[in-house]
Simulated assay, not measured.
Amino acid sequence: MGDKTIDIKKVFLLAGALAAYWIGSGFATGQEALQFFAVYGIKGIAGGIVFLVIMGIITYILYGAGQKNKFANPYDVFEYYCGKVLGQIYIWYSLTLIYCIFVVMLAGGGATINQYYNLPTYMGTAVIGVLALGTALLGVEKLIDIIGVIGPVKIVFLAIIGIAGLSLLYGTPHLLAEADSAMPNLGFKAASSNWLWSAVLYAFLALIVSIPFQVNCGASANRVKEARMAGILGTIAFAAAIILLVIGEMVYYKLIINQQVPTLAIAKDISPLLGLLFSILIVVSIYSAVASFLLMVVRKFAVDKTKKFNIIATVLTMVGIFCGGIIPFDELVNILYPIAGYSAIVFFAFMLFKELKMKIIAKD
């Protein structure tokens, strides 16, 4: 392969891996798209574009930085941008947040399997935990290969809901205006009182939990241009999923009132078979995100595929499975998420400062 050749398969795998990483249980169920975007009506679609612009810039920078610097440990990116002291604070905060979300997802996975398949919750949590552990033990490259394929599958399934909504809208165009006026008054939870801030907050929440992962993906690319293409493509795919899901939730808004899993309610209405496939998709979404989050936590302490890595990964998984059934995670998330959003905005400011400084130095 020549110096200037772009490996298209690698670009799609790395883009798919990012989409799969972001599409966890909250997004696959439709709750994130509902609370951060759809609840604001048509403005929620504009929010999806705001997310694309912010995250497009961020992934371009982070994937490129990962490829150029090839950090020995992906968490080194925090010191790279913020300096030693603040960098260490970010490292431990990010680590805590990612592990907490890992446990939240395990608990959510157990509840999902219990709800759809009538298996005991602890059994569902254990099954997803063990599958995620097995995937993480294969190492970062294998994980990217696996979830890089799963990512586009998730996007396609979520796009079906949006496409079904668009086709329904084609015959009854007044539905969008009707939904636009109805959505804010139906009792749905909203992430913020303002649609624009909600979109910005969602972008920075996505940033703070994916910084080490994006750096790892960038390092896996063969060259900087390839890495940046993958980052942008993954962000476009995810933003498209947001917008299509928002349209679907607006068009089918009567179906999703008081529904914990909006996507499943819509999918069942479109087709019982699609409903069944969506129940599987949600479990797969949780599994792939859990495996990615676990690997990112353990990579702080050990290189993948080593004995030390395997032991730490196993212990953290066992602790996660145990805690998944006893800690009130709604309170934990309520405390961690707002702080996460603000801390990510500060980190982004440091990123931009460092990148601009390096460009000025390079010109001089």
Rank of each mutant, 00 (worst) to 15 (best):
I98S: 07
I91P: 01
G26T: 03
I54E: 07
K84N: 07
K43F: 10
Q115S: 14
A38M: 08
N118C: 05
G110T: 02
L138V: 02
S94W: 08
N69R: 15
G129V: 06
T96C: 14
G124Y: 05
V103N: 11
M105E: 09
A28G: 00
W22H: 12
K142R: 15
A107I: 01
A132P: 10
T96F: 15
L133Q: 02
V104Q: 04
Y90P: 08
V39T: 13
A20P: 03
G47V: 05
Y60Q: 12
W22V: 05
P152M: 00
T121K: 13
I57V: 14
K70G: 03
Q67Y: 00
G48K: 00
V140P: 00
D145L: 00
F102L: 15
I45K: 09
G124N: 07
G44N: 09
G124M: 03
I113F: 09
F37W: 05
L52Y: 08
F27A: 08
T59P: 12
M123F: 12
I150V: 12
L14R: 04
Y116S: 12
T96S: 15
Y40W: 09
Y40L: 06
Q31R: 11
V103R: 08
F37T: 05
P152D: 00
S25W: 01
I155W: 02
I113Y: 04
Q88I: 05
Q115C: 03
Y90Q: 06
L106W: 08
Y40H: 11
Q67K: 14
I144L: 02
M123T: 11
F12T: 08
G66H: 05
G110S: 08
G44C: 11
T125N: 03
V77Y: 02
G64H: 11
Y116T: 13
A46M: 13
I128T: 12
P152A: 01
I144T: 01
E32F: 01
V153G: 02
G124A: 05
Y117S: 11
V50W: 10
S94L: 06
T96A: 15
Y40N: 06
I101C: 13
M55Y: 04
E141Y: 12
V50T: 14
F102R: 12
V39P: 05
G64L: 05
Y63L: 11
L138M: 15
Y40K: 11
I113V: 14
A65H: 07
V153C: 03
I49V: 14
I146K: 01
M55V: 06
K142T: 14
A136G: 10
Y40A: 09
G83M: 01
G139F: 01
Y80E: 05
F51T: 07
F51M: 06
L138C: 12
A28C: 01
T121R: 11
Y116D: 13
L18A: 10
E141K: 15
V50F: 10
K43N: 13
K154W: 04
V50C: 12
P74M: 04
S25K: 09
A107F: 06
T135R: 03
Y21K: 08
G129H: 01
L18Q: 09
K142L: 09
E32I: 00
